[in-house]
């Protein structure tokens, strides 16, 4: 991997009341790579995203992006630096058309003259021509997710955080999405960090994988390592069932 680090998070911790949502997590993402972030429900994946892109401020630790300390920076500045994200629960602009929603993103780097060109590029890239005039409130979940990724892409990020974009997609839609993400990575040279439950997608798409459980980073490595890692299996099967099998022994 000849590329440079684009994002470094070191020792970030965040607690809500007595609950420690993210506990001393370190992670690095390199330019133009695709990494996965997996873990059981409630492991703190979304909170980690929020800490990285500025929606929440960590209690401890720091986040650097392109060599700049962004720990306490506001989300819009972080986006202007070149980081964008999608949301697990879609946050769409319901009253806008698809084209308008993408335009909101495209204005991040483009002025009035260039913005339409960027919008066309994004619509074309994601194959949204048919629904470009539809209102976001009329779209199904799959299209909404896609529009959200398109909107984020339009801001011309160097790093894109995707929070469960594949949830609820059919396998055909999933394959299409994966090929789009690969193209996005190769052609637009965007590093991707995907939070995902769909293992098929993570395993075939990601170069490296981070595993989070109960707020702690319990493993990282290439897909094969992860799928054979004992702690990961334990975390996924759940300690309860693991305990049961061992007590049955």
């Amino acid at each position: 991997m000849s590329n440079e680090k684009i994002l470094t998070a070191s020792g970030i911790t965040k607690s809500f009341g007595s609950l420690i949502a993210v506990n001393h997590v370190d992670l690095e993402i390199y330019e133009e790579e695709i990494v996965g972030l997996i873990g059981p429900n409630g492991a703190g994946k979304t909170t980690l995203f929020n800490l990285i892109n500025g929606l929440e401020t960590p209690d401890q630790g720091e986040v650097t992006f392109k060599g700049i300390d962004i720990t306490a920076m506001s989300p819009h500045k972080i986006c202007q630096l070149g980081m964008a994200r999608s949301f697990q629960v879609t946050r769409s602009f319901t009253q806008m058309s698809v084209e308008e929603a993408i335009k909101v993103g495209a204005y991040n780097r483009k002025n009035e003259k260039e913005v339409q060109e960027k919008v066309e590029w994004v619509i074309n890239f994601f194959g949204l021509e048919e629904i470009r005039d539809c209102k976001c409130s009329d779209l199904g979940l799959a299209s909404l997710r896609k529009v959200e990724v398109a909107r984020a892409t339009a801001t011309e990020p160097n790093l894109l955080l995707l929070d469960e974009v594949a949830a609820g997609l059919t396998s055909a839609e999933l394959l299409k999405l994966m090929s789009e993400l690969r193209r996005l990575n190769k052609e637009a040279k965007i590093a991707l960090c995907v939070v995902e439950h769909v293992m098929q997608m993570v395993m075939s798409l990601c170069e490296r994988i981070f595993v989070l459980d109960a707020g702690e980073l319990i493993a990282q490595g290439v897909p094969e390592e992860i799928s054979n890692n004992q702690r990961v299996i334990e975390a996924y099967l759940g300690r309860g069932s693991y305990g049961k099998t061992s007590s049955a022994d």
Partner: peptide
């Protein structure tokens, strides 16, 4: 113009707008 798109976006969802680089 840009301001109009930004206002409409933040009017609907401020967090989504922030994340798209809008100084709400």
């Amino acid at each position: 113009t840009r301001l109009g798109y930004y206002l409409k976006a933040l009017g609907e969802d401020e967090i989504a707008a922030e994340v798209l680089g809008i100084d709400t």
